[in-house]
Amino acid sequence: MAKLFDVQAVFSHLSEILAYLPVTLELAVISMLIAVILGLILAVIKINHVPVLTAAVNVFVSVIRGTPIIVQLYITYFGIPMVLKYISTRNGTEFQSGNVPGIFCAIVALSVNESAYIAEIFRGALQSVGTGQIEAANALGMTYFQALRRIILPETLTVALPGLGNSFIGLIKGTSLAFTCAVVEITAQGKIIGGRTYRYFEVYVSLALIYWVVTIVVEQLVKLLERKNEIPENAALVTERVCEAKPGQRI
């Protein structure tokens, strides 16, 4: 009888699975970028109580947070071609709606899903910026968007960074559901290998290892970003910069 658990099988298919890691990362990174921009817009609408739009954002966030991501993936996968077909027939064009790539649908679903959570992270972070600094920016004659870009956002990012890192890690793992949109990424590839070799368990273990390592790398990157974004603790270090800039200057 064959071995119950084949340790070797965990590692022997690693390179086959890792060949699809770029797909996983592509899904995660592109979705994250879109989600951050979308989430920020949603949050700005919400904290400024823009009439009508705020209500729409509230409904959007509620729907997205209230439905499972796998359902959202199915809805976009079947929905986007339907919408395109409708537009195409209305305008009398011959668009092949069946040709929409699955990865496009997956990115739409993942980024829309993540944006709802990121909007809440940004909302909290935006509200944490002291009104004093915003008033100071206004008093200088800055418009809201100038103040947002120059003063509010840099501080918002500092506060939001840990939450965004957390979201990104969640998103990486969320990409494992992209096979519902016929996208072959590492999890889908693992299933394929499992189906071929019947070593499902071993393949899943190696998948777990890959996700874990990727997550550790991301965690470290976020930590690095956080440290870079901090105000230098040591005032003396800053003073040294003055010395370098202007030798002989009295400190």
Binding site: Q133, A136, A139, M142
Partner: peptide, 28 residues
């Protein structure tokens, strides 16, 4: 055309003293 000095200073926390003073000159 008006400048304001606040009770609680309200300096931009993520900017150095120099950058605080430069900000209005650059942006506005």
């Amino acid at each position: 055309n008006t400048g304001m000095v606040f009770q609680k200073f309200n300096l931009f926390e993520k900017k150095t003293a120099l950058e605080n003073v430069m900000e209005g000159l650059l942006v506005v």
